[in-house]
Each structure stands twice: as structure tokens, then as C-alpha cells.
């Protein structure tokens, strides 16, 4: 399993290479719900990826509005010159345009919640997509079954806050307006939600495209890493909301993780960053279908 890191901080690039990362996933202010780079910076990132030998993947994770068709086409023409290794997308309109433009790159379908079974993974791979990103809401046996069925052409989130919701709504700014608070939420990484009766703070990020809400805990696939590494093509470390120190501790750990030291390294991580909550996501917990089974 190769490790990819989402790049929320441009200054990390060289260091990422030193920590054994094979590539980065990033994007720009255009058609991305979480990256804020302008096009010039994206060009620099692309250049540095070549220099440092990192694979560049671009994320286009918004749902395209009809009025933005021409803009997306222009953006893809711009990206063509950056020669990304692949494009992550969640809207089949993006795929349609990539094919129409004969855009040479890997096409990776990343629909977050929807990629949950072998049938859908197979369908996508037979229709010109090179890989799919599995949903976060899967158990280890489910992940294995899908990966084996599609010749391991799957990516999986292995570390980071789990995305729980994506909305076109500007939740925070709407709320601030409602209560008469003069505060701007856009592109600010420090907002958190806390449900009245539950522990834990949920990171929420609002951009011009809407809002995304993340889990209170951080997925840390330490104990599962060795078995996952045999079946997953790319493991994704999501650096959003993570401090630099946490990110690079994890990347250092991933380089040396094995079945024998995983528990120890995870414990060390938890001790070192005791203010954070690490968990294993849905790897060992199947969610219930009906209320009475929950």
C-alpha cells in the first residue's frame, strides 16, 4: 500500500517525500470544498512534486453547477499542463468532461459515502475509472471483500478526521446572521460543533461551496495497517485539521508499522497527543440498519 497525503499545507511538500509518502492529493479554490490554493500556487506545487518525486493527484470534489460547465472545462485545460497522475472526483459530470477532453490521468471515483459494495466498485472500473475510494463506513471484512473482487483497485482513508456530512448550505454564516453575530466562517479551520448531549467536538469547514462536517475522533488504522496494506492500493492520510506534529508522527509510524509494533506505536501516539481522541472508525463496528438494532 502506498501512502497518499492530502496537502492542506504547501510547506510540507519536501518533508512528505522524506517521510516516504508517494504522492499528494490537493486542489485549488476551484471545484474543491477544502483546498484554498490559487492557480499559481497549484502550479508551484505541481513543479515541486516533480522535483521531489511525488505523484500529484487533484481533487475535484464539488458537485458541478450547470452554469460552471465552461469554467470546469477551462480548469481541466489548465490542469492538463500540470500533468497530474490522477483526478479524484465525486460528480459523474466531471468524469464525462475528462473523457470528452481525453484528459490523460487516472480517474478515481471518490463519492465518500456511496462506495460500499463490490457491485458498484466493479461497475465503475468497467466504465473507465481506474480506482475507487471506498466509503469510510465499512468494516474490515467488507473492505477486504470489495478489494479482492476488483483486483485491489481501491483507495481507503487510513488516518484523519472522518468526513460525516457534505452540504451546499452555509451553516455557520447562516447561523451567525440569524443571531446577529458579526463573524465570517468561510475557509476558517477553527470552528467546531458540539451536540448538546454528547461529548466531542466536530470540526466544521465552510467554503464558498458549502459546509463539511467531520468526526470528533481521528481514525488511526494502526492495528489494521498490516492486513490492509496487502489489499489496498493507496492508503490516504487526511491532514485536514491536524497539527503538523501529529501528521509527521503518524507518517513516521506508518513507515515502520508492522504486526508486532502496531499496538505499541498506537499507544505512544495516544500518550503523546492525549488531548486528541483516536479510534478505529467503522473497521470493527457495522452500523445498524434499523433503529431497534442500534
Amino acid at each position: 500500500m502506498e501512502t497518499l497525503v492530502t496537502l492542506s499545507n504547501y510547506s510540507y511538500l519536501k518533508k512528505l517525500r522524506d517521510y516516504g509518502v508517494s504522492g499528494i492529493i490537493t486542489g485549488s479554490r476551484y471545484f474543491s470544498s477544502r483546498y484554498f490554493y490559487d492557480l499559481e500556487t497549484l502550479k508551484k506545487i505541481a513543479l515541486e512534486c516533480i522535483i521531489y518525486g511525488l505523484d500529484l493527484y487533484i481533487s475535484i470534489d464539488t458537485f458541478l453547477e450547470e452554469k460552471d460547465r465552461a469554467l470546469l472545462e477551462e480548469y481541466l485545460e489548465f490542469l492538463r499542463f500540470l500533468r497530474p497522475k490522477g483526478i479524484y472526483f465525486s460528480d459523474f459530470g466531471v468524469l464525462h468532461l475528462l473523457k470528452k477532453l481525453h484528459f490523460e490521468a487516472e480517474y478515481i471515483y471518490a463519492p465518500d459515502t456511496l462506495m460500499t459494495n463490490s457491485l458498484d466498485a466493479e461497475f465503475c472500473l468497467r466504465r473507465g475509472m481506474d480506482r475507487v475510494v471506498l466509503a469510510r463506513e465499512l468494516t474490515i471484512p467488507e473492505i477486504k471483500a470489495i478489494a479482492q473482487r476488483v483486483d485491489h483497485k481501491v483507495d481507503l482513508y487510513i488516518f484523519g478526521y472522518l468526513k460525516m456530512a457534505k452540504s451546499k448550505r452555509h451553516y455557520l454564516n447562516n447561523y451567525f446572521k440569524e443571531i446577529g453575530l458579526d463573524k465570517e466562517a468561510k475557509d476558517d479551520l477553527y470552528f467546531r460543533l458540539k451536540e448538546y448531549n454528547r461529548e466531542g467536538y466536530l470540526p466544521i469547514l465552510e467554503t464558498k461551496y458549502g459546509s463539511e462536517i467531520y468526526s470528533e475522533g481521528i481514525l488511526a488504522a494502526y492495528l489494521e495497517y498490516e492486513s490492509l496494506s496487502k489489499i489496498i492500493t493507496k492508503g490516504i492520510v487526511d491532514d485536514l485539521f491536524l497539527k503538523e506534529e501529529v501528521l509527521f508522527t503518524v507518517l513516521k509510524d506508518l513507515k515502520r508499522l508492522n504486526g508486532d509494533n502496531a499496538g505499541l506505536l498506537l499507544n505512544n501516539l495516544k500518550l503523546r497527543f492525549s488531548d486528541l481522541k483516536f479510534d478505529d472508525g467503522y473497521f470493527h463496528q457495522k452500523t445498524a440498519i434499523k433503529k431497534e438494532d442500534a
Binding site: F63, L114, T116, M164, K166, S167, E195, K290
Partner: peptide, 23 residues
């Protein structure tokens, strides 16, 4: 749905009920 339909797992995480499978 407040979020894009199908792109929300608040319920999964907070109640262990799968929003995308009827819960």
C-alpha cells in the same frame, strides 16, 4: 435533507444507525 442526500453519516457516527440504509 440538510446535507446532500446520501452524503451524510451523522446518524451513523452519533447513533450507530446507518442513514443510508434506512436508519
Amino acid at each position: 435533507c440538510a446535507n446532500y442526500s446520501g452524503r451524510c453519516t451523522l446518524s451513523n457516527r452519533m447513533t450507530n444507525r446507518d442513514a443510508n440504509r434506512g436508519g
